[in-house]
Amino acid sequence: MVNKQFLGYALLLLALIAAPFLGAYPILVIKLLCFALFASAFNLLLGFTGFLSFGHAAFLGSAGYAAGHVMKVWGWTPELGLLAGMVAGAALGGLFGLFAIRRQGIYFSMITLALAQMFFFFCLQAPFTGGEDGLQGVPRGKLFGLLDLSSDLVMYYVGLVIVVAAFLLIVRTVHSPFGQILKAIKENEPRAISLGYDTNRFKLIAFMISAGLSGLAGALKTEVLGFATLSDVHWSMSGSVILMTLVGGLGTLSGPLVGAAVVIALENKLGEVGNWIAAVSGIEWFKSLGESVSLVTGLIFVVCVMAFRRGIMGEIIALRDRLRAKR
């Protein structure tokens, strides 16, 4: 069974390596991969420690601004830019964590949301973010001063390597003794405490890892697209990443990847889907579906919570287990 899983990931990786030659636009794919990494980092926190952070946009966005600023204004090389983004995300995560882990459950979500909103207003007013216009024209630069990233194809493969490495790190974290302790805290915190674990420290570290990897995703996004904007720090981005994880499958490793693909595709293709429905059903209203992204995401949220809590990959895994049990 492990082999089959491995085969699945290998096929996905092969497809991603071949994607630019199969007609996929590399920048779109790498943007999708950034969100897949973002959702995986988010899921590391929610799925494996049970903390619903409603402020992850702040980590994605702060890293985007940090990476953009050091590369554009200070002329740092891309690898240092990515590192700066990751550090910015992790540091902000540590700061948020100091406040947020003092409360549990639903309060944790509200506190992270409020802190992220505070950070949003900070970004709106701070001079280096460019306010409403955002940070524009970030140069891609040369990796280690050698490899020119201005070619989309080179950028794509560098980005792919980074995302795959980060994903492997997440897999490793989940299966490490550290990951097991996180699971123990999720299942029964008082027992974990009585076993002698300083649970607050573990929670804070998990929060910082998740924030740092979200930061990496944000920095890579800025590196690829060349800009960082306020929409990345807005709370609706935190909502998006929750939706990706929920649709893909909470607490599964592959779920966030699938979820990110579904949600991003939906946001980009909703207009076309609407036109198609309008053509088939003859109802004019559907033609404006492309402008109602929030309405559709809201409906998906409702459907997921009411009837589809395991998400796509969660359902597949459950189906597989049921079939295996019959055999």
Binding site: T297, F301, V302
Partner: peptide, 8 residues
């Protein structure tokens, strides 16, 4: 999450 969905 449900009430967030309803909000949207």
């Amino acid at each position: 999450l449900l009430t967030l969905g309803l909000t949207l």
